[in-house]
Computed example of a mutant assay.
Amino acid sequence: MSEAYVKRTDTDKGITTIEFFHPKHNSLPSDVLGDLAETITKAGEDASVNVIILRSGGDRTFCAGASFDELINIDDFETGKKFFSGFANVINACRKCPKLIIGRVQGKAVGGGVGVASAVDYCFATTFASIKLSELNVGIGPFVVGPAVERKVGLSAMSQLTINADEFKSAEWAQEKGLFAEVFDDAEAMDNAVEKLADYLADTNPEARAELKKVFWEGCENWDKLLAKRAEQSGKLVLSEFTKKALAKYK
């Protein structure tokens, strides 16, 4: 696999799998973020869909977060705001989607990747799925994904990830804090669990599932405005001299 993509696969039972991929460790440039948000939204609007599985391609990194190639080339506020709004749109697409979303995390999740894992409703992982909020390393912070991460693991754990930005936390730590529901020794065992839960949910009352989704996300109704404001914070910081110097190391 050498080309980035977002693809959707449907089954007769109403189980829809949405998969994203990027050759650079499943990083997320603007076009992939846009396609991902749109695909989630359309699946949520599709009456034939009962449950959604969100996953990434490949067998190593789940998601490396923001595309450094794109970050390095941001040179004005509007471009920066638009880029970080891409993550806001994916998180809000998951939040507003009336279908329950199962996450499948096969490997490391960094920055925005932790945000994606936090935005699903039930998340499985392997023991290789360590997590890190690395934004402070390049002079910004996890402003956009922060609310989603905090909602799942609490302010204390989110602040630990944010402040100790150079250290990975284990999948077991993430499970203990509530990000991952279950952690498996390998992808095969995880996939069996994903399939089992998806099959079960597809047979439950769709009205009950939709109402539960609303309950799970109560208190987040202001996130359209909140995450837009957070995207502005990141859009300003990415232009700072500190951040420009930090990103230059990755050229």
Results as ranks from 00 to 15, higher is better:
residue 202 A to K: 12
residue 251 K to W: 00
residue 174 A to D: 12
residue 57 G to F: 03
residue 192 N to Q: 08
residue 132 K to C: 15
residue 205 N to D: 15
residue 149 V to D: 05
residue 132 K to E: 14
residue 46 D to K: 00
residue 165 A to Y: 14
residue 137 N to E: 09
residue 62 F to K: 01
residue 162 T to Q: 09
residue 172 E to W: 08
residue 92 N to F: 04
residue 116 V to T: 04
residue 161 L to F: 11
residue 222 N to C: 01
residue 105 V to Q: 06
residue 85 S to T: 15
residue 103 G to S: 07
residue 216 F to M: 12
residue 8 R to C: 10
residue 243 T to N: 14
residue 127 T to R: 15
residue 20 F to Q: 01
residue 17 T to K: 12
residue 101 I to C: 09
residue 199 D to T: 01
residue 107 G to Q: 00
residue 233 Q to N: 15
residue 18 I to W: 09
residue 88 A to I: 11
residue 112 G to E: 11
residue 246 A to D: 10
residue 174 A to F: 10
residue 170 S to Q: 12
residue 78 E to W: 12
residue 62 F to S: 03
residue 44 G to M: 05
residue 45 E to M: 03
residue 5 Y to M: 13
residue 144 V to Y: 06
residue 89 N to W: 12
residue 182 E to K: 14
residue 31 D to H: 08
residue 110 V to R: 11
residue 247 L to N: 05
residue 142 P to F: 12
residue 23 P to R: 10
residue 50 N to L: 02
residue 189 A to S: 13
residue 25 H to V: 03
residue 68 F to D: 01
residue 126 T to V: 13
residue 75 D to H: 15
residue 142 P to N: 11
residue 171 A to W: 03
residue 45 E to H: 00
residue 63 C to K: 02
residue 206 P to A: 03
residue 77 F to C: 09
residue 104 R to M: 03
residue 28 L to D: 04
residue 61 T to Y: 03
residue 88 A to N: 11
residue 11 T to S: 15
residue 215 V to D: 00
residue 46 D to F: 01
residue 86 G to R: 11
residue 172 E to C: 07
residue 11 T to F: 06
residue 56 S to T: 14
residue 72 I to N: 09
residue 227 L to A: 12
residue 57 G to L: 06
residue 146 G to T: 06
residue 134 S to A: 13
residue 153 V to P: 05
residue 149 V to H: 08
residue 21 F to D: 01
residue 164 N to V: 12
residue 105 V to T: 09
residue 56 S to I: 04
residue 245 K to S: 13
residue 38 E to H: 10
residue 229 K to Q: 14
residue 81 K to Y: 06
residue 152 K to T: 01
residue 111 G to D: 15
residue 119 A to S: 15
residue 146 G to N: 03
residue 220 C to A: 09
residue 31 D to A: 08
residue 220 C to G: 03
residue 143 F to S: 10
residue 143 F to P: 02
residue 48 S to W: 05
residue 187 A to D: 07
residue 111 G to A: 15
residue 168 F to V: 07
residue 140 I to M: 12
residue 240 S to Q: 13
residue 26 N to C: 08
residue 194 V to A: 01
residue 137 N to T: 03
residue 28 L to R: 03
residue 198 A to D: 04
residue 4 A to T: 04
residue 118 S to E: 05
residue 237 L to P: 02
residue 53 I to Y: 07
residue 2 S to Y: 06
residue 234 S to V: 06
residue 33 L to P: 01
